[in-house]
């Protein structure tokens, strides 16, 4: 299952970043596929990106909501929120574990040999604060003299945007380097901070700062496809605690909002108590008993 997950992660990486003509055009993809929502965090100003980032699109729509109402268009973000909700209702944060390019990037960074550390559990709530303030409230209500808001999370925080779009665009269009200022330095510092943190701890951005993960986490109790615990089989041995990349104690909280359904816990559960299922119907169970040679 772990190998399958790696293949799916790679597939989604190339599906959402499938425009490889950018070294020739020196610009981003501008085709019709950009009407499709990227399930994971993937900046649409990335030269290779073929889809739109739901967090970026949502902020853009909220920032321009007054202008759209004044012009009689009433763009409220229903399409983007609806698409995100459909994805959340089906698989929730399984997207973080299986389809997010920035999640994959952090997983690869964490493979670099180094001392490994945990993450203070209370930091998980920071991503909900970022979702509410930087993605929703500030773009809606912090407006300029023209009645237009700003994309606060993208502009001041998003390390995925700096990695996937900021740095590549500076390389593709060197003339843009004349525009560099404190804003880029701030965003570059945040990116470097999260890169170093991802080497030392597992998926720090997903666990503490991703507003898209925070949105999908709201579906943890009602999503269609989810990892479930068979309480009758579980012996509370704690084997699932050590392997979870998100720091979840699955036997204690099987509906945990942090669970990304990566199935690392299912792999080590010798009791076969952890299954991937469609609302009660098990579809995958991956622990295999070691083969014993007959004496």
């Amino acid at each position: 299952m772990d190998l399958l997950r790696k293949w799916v992660q790679g597939l989604f990486f190339f599906m959402t970043n499938g425009y490889w003509n950018f070294p020739v055009t020196r610009s981003i993809y501008k085709g019709p596929l950009k009407v499709v929502c990227s399930p994971g965090l993937n900046c649409y100003s990335c030269p290779a990106s073929t889809t739109y980032c739901p967090i970026g699109a949502l902020q853009q729509l909220f920032a321009g909501i007054r202008i759209s109402i004044e012009t009689g268009q009433f763009f409220m973000g229903f399409y983007v929120i609806g698409t995100m909700g459909i994805l959340g209702g089906f698989v929730g944060r399984m997207i973080c574990g299986w389809a997010c390019p920035f999640g994959l990037f952090q997983e690869l960074l964490h493979k670099i040999p180094s001392p490994k550390f945990g993450i203070w559990p209370l930091l998980r709530y920071m991503k909900y604060i970022l979702l509410v303030f930087m993605v929703i409230l500030l773009p809606l209500f912090a407006i300029d003299e023209f009645g237009s808001g700003s994309t606060w999370f993208c502009k001041y925080f998003c390390p995925a945007g700096t990695l996937e779009a900021g740095i590549p665009m500076l390389l593709l269009q060197p003339a843009l380097q004349a525009n560099l200022g404190w804003l880029f330095l701030l965003k570059l510092s945040i990116l470097i901070f999260f890169i170093i943190w991802a080497v030392l701890a597992s998926r720090p951005f997903c666990r503490t700062a991703c507003p898209l993960g925070a949105f999908y986490a709201l579906f943890s109790k009602v999503k269609l496809i989810k990892v479930s615990l068979d309480h009758k089989k579980c012996t509370h041995c704690g084997a699932c605690h050590d392997v979870c990349p998100m720091g979840v104690h699955f036997n204690e909280s099987p509906d945990d909002m942090e669970c990304i359904s990566c199935l690392s816990c299912s792999k080590v559960c010798k009791q076969n108590a952890i299954n991937l299922g469609i609302r009660g119907l098990s579809i995958a169970n991956q622990y295999k008993k070691p083969k014993v040679k007959p004496i």
């Binding site: 610009s27 981003i28 993809y29 501008k30 085709g31 019709p32 950009k34 009407v35 900046c43 649409y44 100003s45 889809t51 739109y52 980032c53 970026g56 699109a57 853009q60 729509l61 759209s68 268009q73 009433f74 763009f75 409220m76 973000g77 229903f78 399409y79 983007v80 929120i81 609806g82 698409t83 909700g85 459909i86 700003s150 994309t151 993208c154 502009k155 945007g161 700096t162 779009a165 900021g166 665009m169 500076l170 843009l176 525009n179 560099l180 804003l183 880029f184 701030l186 965003k187 570059l188």
Partner: peptide
């Protein structure tokens, strides 16, 4: 999502996604 499609939001999302937002990426 269907309401959004009825209001024409996909074209707005497409329009935004096909333009490089320099301030959004820190430039």
């Amino acid at each position: 999502a269907m309401i959004g499609i009825g209001l024409g939001e996909p074209s707005q999302a497409l329009n935004q996604a096909t333009q490089i937002c320099l301030s959004c990426i820190g430039i």
